[in-house]
Design a protein around this nucleic acid. Structure first.
Lengths: 338, 338
DNA sequence: TTGTAGGCGTTATCAG
DNA sequence: CTGATAACGCCTACAA
């Protein structure tokens, strides 16, 4: 049997006894074609189940009206939420979104960026700024506008739409100190290739040293963003030197893992040990006790990123946007037992 | 300023002083080109930052090597997890994945399906089977292989890779009865346009009637998949007639919402009321008490779906696959107080 | 091993 | 309002 061929513009044109140009017009600017003609054409279109070939369309029109996004993983509520808002804004402007994920791997991310560009995306959303300079050069060479989200640094070379992870982590550490903690540990995300995790750790470290906490009273262990891994990290921490009275976690998933493990070990939270998170995802509301965390406006960030991208597409110089975060106190942070 | 033009195959060919055919070969089958030539070409490729135009490539080669998926939302761990596995399997076979989401809206789903097909996807993953017949006809007309996941029905007309939601819900309801409950309520997902939610509700209903529970002792309220909505639904249920001793929820998110609200209202779980979930996502481990739920092999389902799709692509007749589920007992379900 | 040339499905430009 | 026709960027016989 011969290989199946989808119907083309020409098939429609022939069957409707008009030219391909007319069919094309019916589809893109119905107003410019006579009612009778249009109806006949549309009839054939649906009979044949015709759908325009996107590749051909993009090639001829020289634009795709689609925006791309490369995120570390969809399996993290913060990206899922932010991207949802990003996508809503994009759709509302008549464009569409193409997403790819990198699993936090630099080389995979680069591959995905290229794939998205090959597919003709007009602009790009990327997470954070920790990637090879080469990629930025490529983007510049191709004149692809992009914004970096989920972080905000003062560097003038990029357009950021995010928040200051360093600052927010600094503030959280100070809050922990205010509660009277003096022996503190941190369960951080993997900082290699992740500027958000890196900045959060740096912020905590700086706050503690600014407030005179000795190095010996602060330990850090990195782990992947999973409940179990965080639990293990928690045990590791407890097994090393003097027990801290508070554990600052790089995000809410880590905090949930720490809390669960603490309870499993018979240590009450915050009675026996305090725990803090970061991101304010639903999870932090569900754990018992609720997690004291940093609220991040994920949805607003997604929406703003889209806005900035569209203005960049209109040749306007894109401008970085810094969003504010704030601490939400729940029950997982309290003064140390004494 | 003139509009920027990305470098093309021809640009590379010219600069490397070879034909476009040679450049094309270097990229797709490096083995067929002399070493020296190849090196020269690749050099130019990276100098120019050349990336092949996907649309043109697809058009000329008449295949894209990409598979599409339309899911209700990424903001639900079950899809995020299953899709991750789906995507891993696809990548491992050298193809790529294009995802779109429908927000549980039928018309949007149809639009997304068409968009994906316009983009040339070779095959499609869809969730459940509740959609207009017209769409299936369209798929057939275009000869696009597809599989329906997250549900399994006996209908021979489709290829399913999923589990029997009805059966699983039936089993869970029986389990609840075994614990001695006789007044039961259900917080179901929105069943309109969602065959999974529909079957779960139907399964529960059937089990209860099979076991002689009177209609008056069973009430159902539907609500969207959110913690808060589930909480509200829980209150609604408690405010109506005699209080049930157990609440069967359509998924774990609903269960978490119910448990949280119960505790907020001062009703202990399972002491004051029992709650069950469905899906076995991480959340059900995190809530206190842990949720008794139906374990679903999301990752395996994703992987299997990909396998089936690839075999369909090889002209093999795709065959439905039914996956098994089982109940995981945690603490949220216990015999009624009295 | 490399080059030539035709065709893939649309859009856009220009005449009628 | 409608119809020719030339791109668009790449692949792939087929030739050399």
């Amino acid at each position: 049997m011969e290989k199946f061929q989808p119907p083309t513009l020409e098939d429609v044109a022939r069957k409707a006894a008009v030219s391909t140009a007319t069919v094309s017009r019916c589809l893109s600017r119905p107003g410019t074609v006579r009612q009778a003609t249009r109806e006949r054409v549309m009839q054939v279109v649906s009979e044949l189940g015709y759908t325009p070939n996107f590749g051909a369309q993009a090639m001829a029109a020289r634009r795709t009206n689609t925006i791309g996004a490369v995120i570390p993983t969809m399996d993290n509520a913060i990206f899922a939420k932010g991207l949802q808002a990003f996508q809503e804004e994009i759709s509302s402007r008549g464009a569409s979104l193409l997403v790819a994920s990198s699993s936090y791997k630099k080389d995979l991310e680069e591959k995905q960026i290229r794939a998205l560009i090959a597919r003709g995306v007009d602009a790009l959303l990327l997470i954070g700024d920790d990637r090879d300079e080469e990629i930025y050069e490529y983007l510049a060479k191709r004149h692809i506008p992009y914004v970096l989200a989920w972080n905000h640094r003062k560097a003038a070379s990029h357009t950021y739409v995010g928040f200051d992870n360093f600052q927010a982590a600094y503030a959280m550490a100070e809050r922990v100190l205010q509660h009277g903690h003096r022996r503190i540990a941190m369960i951080a995300g993997i900082t290699e290739g992740n500027d958000r995790a890196f900045d959060r750790r740096a912020g905590v470290r700086k706050a503690l040293s600014d407030h005179g906490i000795a190095d010996a009273d602060f330990s850090v262990v990195e782990c992947v963003y999973s409940i179990d891994a965080a639990g293990d990290a928690f045990e590791t921490i407890l097994g090393t030197g003097r027990r801290p009275t508070a554990v600052i976690c790089g995000n809410d998933v880590l905090a949930a893992g720490a809390i669960l493990r603490a309870k499993a070990m018979g240590i009450s939270v915050p009675g026996g040990i305090s725990v803090t998170g970061f991101d304010d995802i639903e999870l932090s509301t569900v754990v018992d006790p609720g997690v004291t965390t940093v609220h991040v406006p994920h949805r607003r960030m997604g929406k703003t990123a889209a806005t900035v991208l569209f203005s960049a597409l209109k040749n306007r110089q894109p401008k970085s946007r810094k969003l504010e975060t704030h601490i939400i106190e729940r029950q997982s942070l309290a003064p140390p037992a004494s």
